[in-house]
Design a protein around this nucleic acid. Structure first.
Lengths: 224, 224
DNA sequence: CATTGTGAATCCGTTCACAGCG
DNA sequence: CGCTGTGAACGGATTCACAATG
């Protein structure tokens, strides 16, 4: 029984961890409904997942189910939390208290256990010293490194204009952040020992545009 | 010379179109610098792309370069715009005038040609009738279908709370939207003939969490 | 006996290496 | 001659089909 204890496993694809996050959310829903056990077959039917894929994904981390029965939800939920590192509180700071930064920091889903958004940062003196709608303090943009360290933040979110993204990320890293999500439309170079993910909201419309174009007969029609 | 005229090509992966969007952005930068011609080799050096991949990606849509020389930037730029459907204006409406909706609608990068954000929608009577910082009118959330149609919007962005996401998307579709970006943390079922992409901001932290956990020695340590 | 866990088969995207061409 | 365009090799992820098993 190849039980793979936590932290001991081969590198896993991002697609897999993404699906496991989704699966965890489904388990929470089912748990809330009082369901105690679920099979991969039922997960497929109810949530549109692929049952074989669920099993393969889980297999990379160990054995979590009971043959002939399925998965006991509380067990799988807890094991998954462990696998995804969600069994441990993580302090988050958000650089940039514009609409995007505030949207993230105040979001019921974003700022919820095990994640805690401890501070926002902004360079606007009018904002510094105030707090977001849900009470997250807005600190001075010049204090990012110091405050990140003081708060013990492991995760930094970059929600500043493109021009400021580089220095902002550097300050987060200097303050000890080990993971960064960058929402500025500028891919940030890698920092040693820091997990960095760029999310370019700008490009989201481009993706849709292509799909629209692909479903159209034949636009303006360039003369031959 | 397998020139593939616009609209005539095999289905292409999302990864490819994403890279082409990125490439187009690079071409704009180079064009702004007055560079007239660029080779895939140079694109690799300067922007960290993969030259072979650039050529393969482009190959799926036709032949765009000059052998022995490289790509003439204005030509490739225009052809790419055509391929990605960016040579045609697209009206966008954003449902939800909360922080996220406002952040998107007012973003210099989001609301810029060929995309035009024509309206925001919200159910809050205090917001309806006002406008965003950059002057985009906020219309009544009950008018989504009608206004979407009246404005001729092809793209709808869902930036409302999870509970409202389903009906909101349905209203956008009813109004004629053919592509939807959903930012609510609820995957929306497919609508016939509508390109729908879910972007779950909530899961962005989960992804980082896994990376943090993977780089940690061995957390709380469950006793053996 | 239904369901998991998994080797084998398949699919798809990336990388390589070079023929073809301006 | 240099670079594009591309067939072939490669690798990783998904899907399939079934043996193992509580």
């Amino acid at each position: 029984m190849t039980v793979t204890p936590r932290g001991r496993h081969a590198p896993v694809s991002e697609a897999t961890t993404h699906r496991l996050s989704l699966l965890l959310r489904c388990l929470r829903i089912l748990d809330g409904e009082g369901v105690g056990t679920i099979s991969s077959r039922l997960l497929e039917e109810r949530f549109g997942m692929n049952s074989a894929q669920i099993r393969k994904d889980l297999a990379q981390f160990g054995e979590f189910g009971v043959r002939g029965v399925g998965y006991r939800i509380p067990v799988l939920r807890d094991r998954l939390r462990g696998v995804l590192g969600l069994d441990r509180a993580r302090i988050v700071v958000v650089a940039g208290a514009g609409n995007l930064g505030l949207a993230l920091a105040d979001s019921r889903n974003f700022n919820s256990p095990p994640f805690r958004v401890a501070a926002l940062f902004d360079v606007d003196p009018a904002k510094v010293g105030t707090a977001s709608r849900t009470g997250i303090p807005i600190l001075a943009g010049t204090d990012i490194a110091r405050q990140t360290q003081a708060l013990g933040a492991e995760i930094g979110v970059v929600a500043v204009p493109a021009e400021a993204a580089g220095p902002t990320a550097a300050a987060l890293v200097a303050g000890g952040a080990r993971a960064i999500r960058n929402f500025a439309p500028t891919p940030l170079g890698p920092f040693r020992g820091v997990a960095l993910k760029n999310v370019d909201l700008t490009l989201f419309l481009d993706g849709l545009s292509y799909l629209l174009a692909a479903s159209e007969p034949a636009p303006p029609a360039p003369e031959p």
